[in-house]
Design a protein around this nucleic acid. Sequence first.
DNA 1: CAGAGGTACTTGAGGTTGTCAAATATCCGG
DNA 2: CCGGATATTTGACAACCTCAAGTACCTCTG
Lengths: 138, 138
Amino acid sequence: MMGLMNPAWQLLNDLLMAQRARMPAIAAEFELSPVQAQVLRLLEPERPMPMGRLACGLGCDASNVTGIVDRLEARGLIERRPAPADRRVRVLVITPAGRRVRTTMLARLAEPPVEITRLSREDQELLAGILARMAAAD
Amino acid sequence: MMGLMNPAWQLLNDLLMAQRARMPAIAAEFELSPVQAQVLRLLEPERPMPMGRLACGLGCDASNVTGIVDRLEARGLIERRPAPADRRVRVLVITPAGRRVRTTMLARLAEPPVEITRLSREDQELLAGILARMAAAD
DNA sequence: CAGAGGTACTTGAGGTTGTCAAATATCCGG
DNA sequence: CCGGATATTTGACAACCTCAAGTACCTCTG
């Protein structure tokens, strides 16, 4: 009764499980916790973000963001700035130092793992096509 | 300069990021933390596991496992048992209650998300083939 | 067989992440 | 201007995580 799992999903699920540790590992290379890396990934330069929107992006309570931002700010990677339009809001901007870390980290994340590069060019193109169709939400 | 990311990896990476929250969400349905769900997943019935091997499977320090097991044991989902061969070792077994939670949870994890079921049969077969080739480590 | 060194687990200190409830400051509609 | 919403912070508390040290046990070696 349990052996009837959709084969594509079975394999994709295994892959997801196997790659679970990737982000934390890469974050650690930059002495960042997983959440901190996530913040740096979400906080695009030239695109400041209010703390509430960050809480939303992280999928956690707003009160949690306070401490996370505290620590990243203490390390000089991001900065709290008042929002001129609404004085309740604190807007987050990435500092030059943060931008450097972010760029290197994103490049590191962009490196395809061997599992991908080992695939033939045809398989890679097929895979990209299928994934694109999966992502296409009507 | 950074736009040259492997398209298949780009899409797969997006998928990984998007599915990041899946396991925690399903765990929460059973009032389990993500790590607790992971333990239940790893601890197959009929296949007791020493705490050290669990630490290895979770990729964390052995001292951390103590507390995690404490809480699962307090909830009656798993049990510590002495290992007859080596009295230093504590072997973990899943209880009947734990087995019930585990079964339901695995069934829940096995449900393919819409993104998969929406694919044509051909795409699903292609995808399974490609993923199988990815998983094939020589 | 005695003791040395290694292994499995626990304990304790300390930090990060997470929640919820309550406080503070600000905004907006009437 | 006032009352109700909204953004952030604070405080209390719990889970998870690491490292260092402790305890109990195993195993090898002389």
